[in-house]
């Protein structure tokens, strides 16, 4: 864009050096360790009953958490942008709690809430709903830790959204639902998708919040990150490397998808920046 402003070699140098040392070196070591495993062994590890169950559980619960946050996050962003009401500022600040709160503390708090003698666990058990130590608990923990993603990506787009089209549509007599579906949602959809995929990626890797509330039962309530952790504790490095590399690959794919969406979004809007 411009070569007038100085400092390009220095800032790029620092950035690349730091990223190489802090991010790429360890990830490279991980892949090196995983490559050592060999393709056949890798497939055998990934085909194992316990690994398969962990991946299935993690993907499912992350999907549930993402759907929840898709709906709740969208509603939250909507309420924060469109309405004025007492406590709005507080609500806006609360959204970031899961980013700032340590995951272990979140896990501890959620498990205290949802166990049989907890504030929620007691009433819920009357209806036969158990959350703590079940897949539902895992989804709750994932949902909690990834609340801000959808809200914070949709919110600015919604704020910038010009209201003339919807006003015109409304004066033409279109219903709210129709305007939302035809005008508003398509406009915020790329941001929504970005938020949702970040939410999903984060849920896949969540550990601290989950281990306190999941029962950690193999096949039933054992998530992938915990399985990788257990494989390390068991000194099963090939298995840990294989699982971790797979999670890493999923993270890469998600990141790629998010970037594609952002590019698409930029192109749609028409401006470079």
């Amino acid at each position: 864009m411009n070569r007038v402003v100085p400092g390009f070699p220095l800032s790029l140098g620092i950035t690349l050096f730091y990223l190489s040392l802090i991010v790429l070196l360890p990830l490279g070591a991980l892949l090196w360790q995983a490559a050592d495993v060999g393709w056949d062994r890798y497939l055998a590890i990934m085909a194992g009953t316990r690994t398969q169950a962990a991946f299935r559980l993690t993907l499912t619960t992350a999907a549930v958490a993402t759907v929840f946050n898709g709906i709740y996050g969208l509603a939250l962003a909507w309420v924060l942008v469109r309405y004025e009401f007492p406590g709005k500022r507080l609500l806006d600040a609360l959204v970031d709690v899961p980013f700032a709160l340590p995951t272990a503390v979140a896990g501890l708090a959620l498990s205290a809430l949802f166990v049989k003698n907890g504030w929620f666990g007691g009433p819920l058990s009357v209806f036969g709903i158990e959350v703590a130590y079940t897949p539902l608990g895992i989804a709750v923990a994932m949902a909690f830790t990834s609340i801000p993603f959808v809200v914070r990506t949709v919110q600015p787009v919604l704020e910038d959204l010009a209201t003339d089209v919807e006003e015109a549509a409304a004066t033409l007599g279109a219903s709210d639902a129709r305007i939302f579906a035809r005008v508003i949602f398509p406009a915020i959809f790329p941001a929504f998708l970005t938020g949702a995929s970040l939410c999903f990626a984060r849920s896949l890797g969540e550990f601290g919040a989950i281990i306190f509330i999941a029962g950690n039962l193999p096949l039933k309530t054992e998530v992938v990150s915990l399985l990788a952790f257990i494989r390390i504790e068991e000194y099963e490095y090939p298995a840990a490397a294989a699982i971790a590399a797979t999670l890493l690959a999923i993270a890469f794919v998600m990141l790629f998808v998010v970037n594609m969406i952002q590019l698409w979004q930029q192109r749609r809007i028409g401006t470079g920046d």
Partner: peptide, 12 residues
Amino acid sequence: PFSISPIIAGIA
């Protein structure tokens, strides 16, 4: 690093 599980970071 935002999209990577902290566990993976630790293992790496």
